[in-house]
Amino acid sequence: MNKLSSYAILFLALFSFTNCSNRISNPPLVINEVLVINEENFVDDYGRRSGWIEIFNNTAKTQDIGGYYLTNDKSDPKKYPIPKGDVLTKIAPHHHVLFWANNKPYQGTFHISFELDPDRENYIALFNESGEKMIDEVTIPNGQLADQSWGYKMDGEKYAQDGTLLLTLLDKVTPSTNNFTLDKNEKVEKFRQNDKFGASMTITSMLVVFGALILLYLVFRTSGKVSSKLKQKKGERLSISKEGVTTSSGPISGEVLTAIFMALHEDQNEIHDFENTTLTFSSVNKNYSPWNSKIYGLRELPRR
């Protein structure tokens, strides 16, 4: 039992390492980058410049934002309803869409019904289809300079692990493209530079593989012992007859042997399914029809 309790402590210790903290998770759709004053930056389809809002799909599935709402007013969450049925409102996994804040919604789905104000802080929020659940919000501070955008350095990464908001002035303006781009796979580069001989990979991986399998070993060693003890107890209980005489030492009868071999046979052939063996009697109703009559199906032999 002492061993069992030591295993229990081991598991408790293991689970104490698990991260059950209240880490703030990033929203599925993030207002990823905002440019308030557009003087020499991105031009819309009409050849005009205006402030813009970029929304990033932070999930691994396509998200349709048709029917959602964009607003710059907390008291009016349904200020700009994003039209439904536009194929372009479907954002592919980890892709973006750009909305022009030019107060010209008649110019198309991506031209919204408000502008960004360069003289005060701008609150922007995205609401779901009911307009009741806020999906993401952002407040761009007052005093913006022309052609400078605010957003998150890593696309969709709104919060740090400790919950700090990562909104910042971005080094470069990247409308409709990733805020952070990779020239190389960073993970691979790290291994290429720091683990030229593969020793680190080997040691780490072997430790984890052994760790995982040692855990399995401990679990099944324990469960095996528990199972054996239970079997032993069950056996003891069965072997004590009403008179208190043990029967296990006596010769095994032919019937018992047959039952054992039958059970082994079933076990080896995996005949341990629980089938529904209910027998029922129900009359089968068949309406008579000359088409199913046997008489018409038989060939008559030619008469001589």
Binding site: A199, M206, F210, I214, L216, Y217, G224
Partner: peptide, 22 residues
Amino acid sequence: ISNPKLILVGAACQFGIFGAYI
């Protein structure tokens, strides 16, 4: 399950993977 210590032999053989990696 009946002899769980044999699990560790499976782990040891993974040296083949990482040896070839090196």
